[in-house]
């Protein structure tokens, strides 16, 4: 019985992305050794004009500090909801956040951008410290941030 259930779950998991015609992105965000408390990050998609389209991951446990993730928090409430519903812990100095999210095929190579906002307590807010096009050509290429992010890379 238990085995059957496990199998079912496995199939459901495999089946779901296929039906939505989506692709799994793996996001790697490595932080500098800045030495303070854990950094709050928001990784999200915008259109070509910089308008927030959807949220890939929020590494920020307390909603009351969202306003420090300035660019992202300007988006609408719907756009700020993480697409997989997951909000995680903040990311410590020098550490790497690795997450996988599913993105609809229609958004790839369509002028959308992946952005990262970061903020550290008693430190600074870095809105859009990473901006990379959501394009096959940009995948697997590390990009350096101008604030706390040492490098950001996405694979698909």
């Amino acid at each position: 019985m238990k085995k059957a259930l496990t199998t079912l779950c496995l199939f459901a998991g495999l089946a779901l992305p296929a039906t939505a015609e989506a692709r799994t992105l793996t996001l790697n965000t490595t932080l500098n050794n800045y030495g303070g408390n854990g950094a709050y990050l928001a990784i999200y998609l915008t259109d070509a004009q910089g308008k927030v389209h959807s949220t890939l991951r929020v590494a920020a446990p307390k909603a009351k500090y969202y306003s420090h993730l300035r660019e992202w928090s300007r988006g609408s409430a719907a756009a700020r909801r993480p697409i997989d519903g997951v909000t995680g812990a903040s990311v410590g100095s020098g550490q790497t956040l690795k997450v996988s999210v599913d993105v609809a095929d229609a958004l790839i190579d369509a002028g959308y951008q992946i952005r990262v906002d970061s903020s550290v307590e008693n430190g600074r807010d870095n809105p859009s410290e990473i901006v990379v096009p959501l394009a096959r050509a940009a995948a697997a290429t590390p990009v350096a941030g101008k604030g706390y992010v040492k490098s950001f890379r996405f694979d698909m």
């Binding site: 909603a63 009351k64 500090y65 969202y66 306003s67 928090s73 300007r74």
Partner: peptide, 10 residues
């Protein structure tokens, strides 16, 4: 409540 995290509409 500490009154922080107030969203100011754009």
């Amino acid at each position: 409540p500490d009154g922080s995290g107030v969203e100011v509409a754009t």
